[in-house]
Each structure stands twice: as structure tokens, then as C-alpha cells.
């Protein structure tokens, strides 16, 4: 059997999910021997943008160039995997998608910058959006960054043609498993565990730190219940909304869909 051809790509991102792959120091050389890495711009030269079996794509679509790149990758890959919360949900960069880009450009680059960006006939800068808003995504691995362990497990499943099985329950289940004291109920802290997908083994609550939702929401997250608990603990609705929107743009809208 010929080796699967893969491509590892980043759109606008922090490169954390690509780096998670490079952080598999013990497995890296073995992985590279089992597949043909056709493109991985961050880590190799001599890249070939040809047809591939699997594309791993990180980051959000934030520019016209990102969008063209994503469509181009989709057109020549069999399977497209979104890696990291940005690619899956929009992540942190999407938190101000309610604001016109021109205003953000002016804030960061000033009037002169605005002129440069305006020079292009079509808007170059787009609101930060997840891959699924533009192309078909075959598999999503959330996490900010995605968990190394999950990446390796999924990678092996791909190679062996096994069923891929990611957690589909909330973080609270994992948190209870490690017997943490509940920060939300017992200590009245703004912990997003109930509405966040599991996978990190409750890393933050285990360090006395409330979950900020970096893995993105669990299916059918019960936002209303969480909001009620937080309101009764004395949090203002603005703060609740703001914190719930760190990794998913406008979570209430999602709920009403």
C-alpha cells in the first residue's frame, strides 16, 4: 500500500496546532516515515501543493487570501481535518466579529493603514470565521491548542482505518472523575465547564482555575442553565456573555438556532 499523502496548513493563526505536531518529539520521525508529507510550510522546504489524502488545517479564515487557500486545499484533498478551536469554532480571533473590520484596522494601523487596506478593490480583511462556514470539514479536533494525545490517537486511527472517537460530553464529567472541588457550585466562580467539550482532563479546574472554554462548546450545551447559576452567584450578564464568547462567536445565537 502506498503511503498516505498529507498536507499540514495554517491559515491566520498562532501556529499552536502545527506546533503541537512538531512537539511530538518522540513520534515525529516515525510519523514522517509512515506518511508522505507533501506540504508543511512551517517545518519544511520543497513543498508540493498537489493532490493529497489528508489535509490538516489550522486557524481561521481572516483574509481573502486565507479563503482562497482554504478552497484550493479542499479542492485537492480527500479528507479535510480542522485542527484547533480556531479552525473548528473561530476561536479567540472571532470574539469581535460584531465590529466592522475598518474600525479594527483604524485602531491598530491608524488612518494611513486604513488607506493601504482600502487600496485593494475587494476587502482583503474578513471577519475571523471557522472552516466549516466555507468548506466541508470531515473531522474536527478542537482544543486551543488541540491536545497532542488526541492528535496522535487520531493519526493512528487514520493509518489503521479505525473508528475515530472523540469525547462528546462536557468537561464537568472529566472534572468529577479527577475529584476536583467544583469551582462553579462550591466556590461561585465563573467556570465554563458545563458548556465546554471534554478532552483536557479538566486541566484548569485541577489548578484551581475556572475553565475558560478553550475547547469550544459541547453538543447541545445548556447555556441557559449555566447563565442562571452565574446570575444567582452575582455575575453581571455582560461579563457572562463576554466570557462565554472568548472562543465561540456569539454563543447565544448558536443556542437559538
Amino acid at each position: 500500500m502506498s503511503k498516505p499523502r498529507i498536507g499540514i496548513y495554517g491559515l491566520s493563526s498562532c501556529a499552536g496546532d502545527q506546533l503541537t505536531i512538531l512537539n511530538c518529539e518522540d513520534e515525529l520521525l516515525e510519523i514522517a516515515s509512515q506518511v508522505e508529507i507533501k506540504s508543511f510550510i512551517m517545518a519544511q522546504t520543497g513543498n508540493e501543493e498537489t493532490s493529497i489524502d489528508i489535509a490538516l488545517v489550522e486557524g481561521t479564515v481572516s483574509t481573502k487570501r486565507d479563503l482562497e487557500r482554504l478552497k484550493e486545499i479542499r479542492s485537492r484533498t480527500n479528507i479535510l481535518v480542522a485542527i484547533g478551536t480556531c479552525a473548528v469554532w473561530g476561536g479567540m480571533y472571532a470574539m469581535r466579529n460584531d465590529i466592522p473590520r475598518a474600525e479594527m484596522i483604524r485602531c491598530v494601523y491608524g488612518e494611513k493603514g486604513l488607506k493601504y487596506f482600502d487600496a485593494a478593490s475587494e476587502p482583503e480583511v474578513l471577519p475571523a470565521e471557522p472552516l466549516k462556514n466555507f468548506v466541508k470539514v470531515d473531522l474536527s479536533i478542537p482544543g486551543c491548542p488541540m491536545e497532542k494525545k488526541w492528535f496522535l490517537r487520531i493519526f493512528k486511527s487514520f493509518l489503521h482505518g479505525d473508528v475515530i472517537d472523540l469525547p462528546n460530553f462536557s468537561l464537568c464529567s472529566e472534572c468529577k472523575m479527577v475529584e476536583n472541588e467544583c469551582l462553579l457550585v462550591n466556590r461561585g466562580l465563573l467556570c465554563l465547564g458545563p458548556i465546554t467539550i471534554a478532552g483536557c482532563k479538566a486541566r484548569c479546574p485541577s489548578h484551581n482555575i475556572p475553565c475558560i472554554g478553550c475547547y469550544g462548546p459541547v453538543d447541545e450545551a445548556n447555556y441557559a442553565a449555566e447563565v442562571n447559576i452565574l446570575l444567582s452567584s452575582g455575575y453581571a450578564i455582560e461579563e457572562i456573555k463576554r466570557k462565554m464568547g472568548f472562543f465561540v462567536f456569539n454563543p447565544d445565537l448558536k443556542q437559538s438556532q
Binding site: 483574509t63 479567540m92 485602531c107 491598530v108 480583511v125
Partner: peptide, 27 residues
């Protein structure tokens, strides 16, 4: 693409800034 971090943190509470700005870059 710019992610406009200086804008993203505008209006945030002081304690929300570190977890946002650390995501400027993974390395």
C-alpha cells in the same frame, strides 16, 4: 492576517488579558 489583538483586548477586564494575548503566538 492581522488578528487585531490590541482591539480584541479593548474593553476587557484586566484579568482577561493574559489568556488572550498569549494566543498571539504558540511558540
Amino acid at each position: 492576517g492581522s488578528r487585531f489583538f490590541e482591539f480584541l483586548v479593548a474593553g476587557k477586564s484586566y484579568d482577561e488579558i493574559p489568556v488572550i494575548v498569549c494566543r498571539i503566538c504558540a511558540i
